[in-house]
């Protein structure tokens, strides 16, 4: 079963091509890493899947249907720079946002919603910090807050952009253990990942991209092949245009 189906996807910023003709199926119930050198288009691929950027060509379907119909089944954890850090909001409220859609935009959160949010924070080891302003946390803690928010959404498909970048080892363990647990519940997880050393420990499948799709296979097969060197050496199209 495929969670994400991508066909002939090309994405460009202005006139600079970032992704060329990607054909890719991401399977349900797997933890998939998207790997590639800087400027390979990893984040862009996620953004195309989430319709943040409009593709020049191609089709993307999610759970064999459109993105719009599946919005409530998707949770996204962005790279950390994208939110308004100075916003007067406490850690607990950030996580509670993950419940907003289910609560309804014009209703108050119930005790149950608050419990769900608190449990998610607890699972991420952050229950001590619920009253902190979001910017008063360390980098790894911030990342865990957003993962806790995603957990609250109870999504089928979890898309994360470098969840482990700049995260301390303690946070990394917490995050990846939770991912494994979610996988057991049948959820699908897709992460942009940069650390090749930890691929084997954390991921079932690897998607290697460098402007175009280099390979997509099980982690073992990828590590045993020469695809990695290929992805990191061969330049997709125009190196300077990134």
């Amino acid at each position: 079963m495929r969670a994400i189906h991508i066909e002939d996807l090309t994405v460009a910023y202005e006139e600079n091509p970032v992704l060329w003709d990607i054909d890719l199926d991401i399977y349900k119930g797997n933890i998939t890493a998207i790997v590639g050198p800087n400027g390979a288009g990893k984040s862009t691929l996620l953004k195309a899947i989430l319709d943040f950027v409009k593709p020049l060509s191609g089709r993307i379907s999610i759970f064999d249907s459109s993105l719009k119909k599946n919005l409530d089944k998707i949770a996204y954890v962005p790279q950390r720079s994208n939110v308004n850090w100075d916003f007067p909001i406490k850690v607990f409220d950030v996580v509670l946002m993950g419940r907003y859609k289910e609560i309804g935009w014009f209703k108050k959160p119930s005790k149950i919603d608050k419990d769900i949010a608190f449990n998610a924070l607890k699972e991420m080891g952050l229950e001590k910090y619920i009253d902190r302003q979001i910017n008063e946390l360390s980098g790894g803690q911030k990342q865990r807050v957003f993962i806790a928010r995603a957990l609250c959404q109870n999504a089928e498909l979890l898309i994360m952009d470098e969840p482990l970048a700049g995260v301390d080892q303690y946070s990394e363990k917490i995050i990846m253990n939770k991912m494994k647990e979610l996988q057991k519940q049948g959820k699908t997880i897709v992460c942009v990942h940069h650390d090749l050393n930890t691929l084997k420990d954390y991921f079932d499948r690897v998607v290697l991209i460098n402007r175009y799709l280099v390979a997509h296979d099980t982690t073992e097969n990828i590590l045993n092949s020469n695809h990695l060197t290929k992805a990191y050496q061969e330049v997709g199209f125009d190196e300077t245009a990134a």
Binding site: Y76, N82, N84, F87, M97, Y100, W105
Partner: peptide, 18 residues
């Protein structure tokens, strides 16, 4: 709630269909 979410985190509000 919509104002709060969209002012705090634009991308998240997009995914939430706001």
């Amino acid at each position: 709630k919509i104002l709060k979410v969209s002012t705090f985190d634009e991308e998240f509000s997009k995914i939430q269909g706001i």
